[in-house]
């Protein structure tokens, strides 16, 4: 059964089609990569799924419910977590407070005026931080963290609402090669442990081909391929889009 299904998703800006008639689905527990060259429509597609943009037409079904045009916070309530391309946290809070704030929101306690936030969901927050190996930094101001650690904290925040689907926009952007693999391995492990589905966009092809269960490829707003790593690697259309020639990914990622 699919966790998320896109049907004929279309969006244009001032007459320019950014996304045209895109349909695909994500199965439960699937680790799905969305790739494509710059300007292919990945971000637009992503932002329609997470609610920042409303599609011109088409449906986005989450567990059978159409979420197209809903606000980001409502989509989050339906169990869709997300991380951002440029990672950041709530800079005026400590690491654990960041996670607690998300847990508080998940528990629908954000309007509580009395009992201190610090005493709420602390155990659960520590547990989430432990899962991303950040428990030792729990009480540090989050703005002091190194970028790679910020990414991990962001992941812990995204997991706070026990999502069934995690949207990750360029999760490894701005990271070094070893850090990059470490993070994706972490995500993959959590996904397997918790049975979460993940949709992520990624520039780094080695990450995509090493980890993704399945890959969808966008080009000029259209879906041009959908399949496992092997089939995408061999897809002529994809190769043309990326390289314009018969060059292969194996060579490119070397």
């Amino acid at each position: 059964m699919s966790v998320l299904e896109l049907r004929g998703l279309t969006k244009s800006f001032g007459g320019v089609h950014a996304v045209r008639d895109v349909s695909f689905e994500i199965g439960a527990g699937e680790f799905l990569a969305m790739i494509g060259p710059n300007g292919a429509g990945k971000s637009t597609c992503f932002n329609m799924i997470n609610g920042q943009l409303a599609p011109d037409s088409g449906d986005i079904l989450c567990d059978g419910k159409n979420i197209a045009g809903l606000a980001p916070r409502d989509i989050w309530r339906l169990g869709v977590g997300r991380t951002f391309q440029v990672a950041a946290t709530f800079g005026s809070m400590t690491v654990i407070e960041n996670v607690q704030t998300a847990l508080i929101s998940h528990a629908r306690e954000s309007y509580r005026l009395w009992r201190p936030a610090a005493s709420r969901h602390r155990t659960r927050a520590l547990e989430l931080l432990r899962q991303v190996n950040m428990q030792d930094a729990a009480d540090r101001p989050s703005r002091e963290l190194a970028y790679g650690d910020v990414k991990r904290v962001e992941l812990a925040i995204a997991l706070a609402n026990d999502p069934k689907l995690l949207l990750m926009d360029e999760p490894t952007a701005g990271m070094g090669a070893s850090e990059r693999h470490g993070l994706i391995e972490l995500v993959k492990r959590l996904v397997v442990e918790r049975g979460i589905s993940v949709l992520f966009t990624e520039h780094s092809m080695d990450v995509v081909f090493a980890f993704a269960d399945r890959i969808v490829v966008l080009a000029r707003g259209r879906l041009i391929a959908d399949g496992d790593a092997a089939s995408i690697r061999d897809n002529v259309q994809v190769r043309e889009v990326y390289f314009g020639t018969g060059k292969t990914f194996a060579g490119a990622s070397a």
């Binding site: 997470n50 920042q52 916070r73 950041a88 946290t89 709530f90 800079g91 005026s92 954000s110």
Partner: peptide, 10 residues
């Protein structure tokens, strides 16, 4: 701190 991120956690 970040309206976008706050919205993204509901």
């Amino acid at each position: 701190d970040s309206a976008l991120r706050a919205e993204a956690i509901g």
